[in-house]
C-alpha cells in the first residue's frame, strides 16, 4: 500500500494538470527504508512529449546525489498519461528500474478540469502489481516544493 499525504498527492495532480497535454514526471523522496514519501521533487520531462517522459540526464544525476546526501531514496516515481488510463504501459514496464519504488500513474485524459485518476503500482522484473493508495491528512515535514 502507498500512504501519501494530501498535500503531496495534490502537488502531483497539480503538476500533471499543469503540463497537460505533455506527460509530467517527478519523484517523492523519503528517508531510506522508511517507505514515507516526504519530499516532493517535480522533474522536467526532457522529452516534452504527450507520449513519453524521461528525466533530464543532468537533473537525474543532481537528484540522486542530493538524495544520497540526505540518505533518501525515491519512494514514489510518478508520471502522467494524458490520453490513456493511469496504468503502466509496456514502455513503462520495460523501463522501470527501481524495484523498491511505488510507481504512481496519474491520468489527465478526461481533461485538466475533470477529476484525475491516481493509481499506484509496484513494477518488479516486468511484473506489475497494483496497490491501494491511502491519502492521509499529513505527515511531517511539510511538503517542500521546488521550482522547475
Amino acid at each position: 500500500m502507498l500512504t501519501i499525504d494530501q498535500a503531496t498527492h495534490d502537488a502531483i495532480v497539480a503538476h500533471a494538470r499543469r503540463d497537460h497535454p505533455d506527460e509530467a514526471c517527478g519523484v517523492v523522496a523519503g528517508p531510506a527504508g522508511s517507505d514515507r514519501p516526504e519530499r516532493f521533487v517535480p522533474m522536467l520531462n526532457a522529452a516534452r512529449s504527450p507520449t513519453f517522459y524521461e528525466f533530464d540526464s543532468s537533473d537525474l544525476l543532481a537528484l540522486y546525489k542530493d538524495m544520497d546526501a540526505r540518505d533518501e531514496e525515491p519512494v514514489v516515481i510518478y508520471h502522467s498519461h494524458t490520453a490513456t488510463e493511469a496504468y503502466p504501459s509496456r514502455t513503462d514496464i520495460g523501463l522501470a528500474q527501481e524495484p523498491d519504488a511505488h510507481y504512481v500513474l496519474v491520468s489527465t485524459r478526461d481533461g485538466i478540469d475533470r477529476p484525475v485518476e491516481f493509481r499506484s503500482f509496484r513494477i518488479v522484473d516486468s511484473d506489475v502489481t497494483e496497490e491501494e493508495v491511502s491519502v492521509v491528512p499529513s505527515h511531517d515535514p511539510a511538503v517542500e516544493t521546488q521550482e522547475l
Partner: peptide, 11 residues
Amino acid sequence: VVILPAVAGGR
C-alpha cells in the same frame, strides 16, 4: 564513475 538507470516511460 556514476551509473544511473534512466527514469523514463511512455504510453
